[in-house]
Design a protein around this nucleic acid. Structure first.
Lengths: 216, 216
DNA sequence: GGGGATCCACTGTTGGATCCAG
DNA sequence: CTGGATCCAACAGTGGATCCCC
């Protein structure tokens, strides 16, 4: 008899274990990360770091219950890129408030793993949670952007909007669209978008971390 | 510049073209179908026949606007199997009536391509639409089964129910479940099910076709 | 015999992000 | 410099059905 057994997923490590492992990666050349030479594409470093931390990727589950792991590409002390947060779909945003939002949950505790893009090494990981000031900015941007997306106006929003958060396309290519429904049920198609932390916002986070060595 | 160009899909053939090609396949050994030795699994013959008819498979589109192509495995003059019709999901059935149902649309015009499982050859294709009698049976079964599924009671329905249509599991394995919602919005998980034409019903169709050579 | 379980290919979606023209 | 476009892997979902104990 064939009996299906769900593939045994390794237990996800605890937040403390992830923290300890991330700190142990400091200084490691990227070439020594597990999967180097195998992982490809723009997310290759992110995938390798997650593997090094013992995190099994699986659709629709947070990295670790209470910690979101993000690589943070640096060129010198400059944050090189904006940071992807999560998808911005009309349907989910129609039923979210800031307090219940995925953006807020994901950003509540982030373990940033700096990546030195010049030396090609992993940097010293640090934990970040939004300060009161930062949370106010994020909330204001989210409430503005989420409202527009929820009302089916996402297509009209440019990445220029928002000080901390921005809305940008997120798809394999510009031809992709997804089915969505107006609040009144009318169906339409829209290009997938996502919330990103602006590069300048990430830069502030880097500088605050450097200024507070107690955190690293 | 990279510009995305949707992969040029070949124009789907018209119903007449499909009919002509299907008739031309009569007598062909399965080993001569395109993709023989490449296509594998339980749907291999179905896939090869569709290729031979020039039908490009793509998710979420009917085979040909107004014709549904189905292989019909025969052992002698005996229909060997039941025939899959379409998924039976609570959410879609909550908003369907018999007139608007996918079951009715799919079965409105079916091009059956018999497959001789003894001689391993393609048989003579024939078109089928439900007679008034058959449609009454299908409708009665559908209204009974769809109502149960829509109300979240699909799990309690066995394949014994229904004279023409039956409800059976449809999944890679018995461990698969899908998210669904009660009529009142309460979420639950349920094993995927699908509508099938009973083998005995398919047998009637075969016999009727044999008795009416005008149709082939 | 047939009800319940299962098999394969292909595409769509998601999570990881970085690329690059203007 | 950065807004808009894109890259890859892995997994889930769909459409094509048949398999195989009881």
């Amino acid at each position: 008899v064939h009996v299906h057994v769900a593939r045994a997923r390794k237990r996800q490590p605890t937040a403390d274990e992830v923290w300890a492992r991330a700190r142990a990666l400091a200084g490691l050349p990227l070439s020594r990360l597990p999967g180097f030479g195998v992982a490809r594409g723009k997310g290759a470093v992110g995938d390798m770091v997650e593997r090094a931390l013992g995190i099994e990727r699986s659709a629709s589950s947070p990295d670790v219950p209470t910690v979101e792991v993000k690589t943070l590409p640096l060129v010198g002390l400059r944050a090189a890129e904006s940071t992807w947060v999560c998808r911005a779909t009309p349907s989910s945003l129609q039923s979210e408030t800031w307090s219940t939002s995925r953006v807020r949950r994901k950003l509540a505790r982030v373990l940033f793993v700096p990546i030195d893009r010049v030396a090609l090494r992993v940097g010293t990981a640090f934990l970040w949670s939004p300060t009161e000031d930062e949370e106010r900015m994020l909330r204001a941007d989210w409430e503005d952007l989420a409202d527009l997306v929820a009302r089916g106006l996402g297509f009209a929003v440019s990445a220029r909007r928002g000080r901390a958060l921005q809305l940008r396309p997120k798809a394999p290519h510009a031809g992709v669209t997804r089915a969505a429904r107006e609040l009144d049920g009318t169906p339409y198609r829209t290009a997938p978008q996502a919330f990103y932390l602006r590069r300048t916002f990430v830069q502030r986070v880097v500088e605050a971390a450097l200024a507070d060595p107690a955190r690293w």
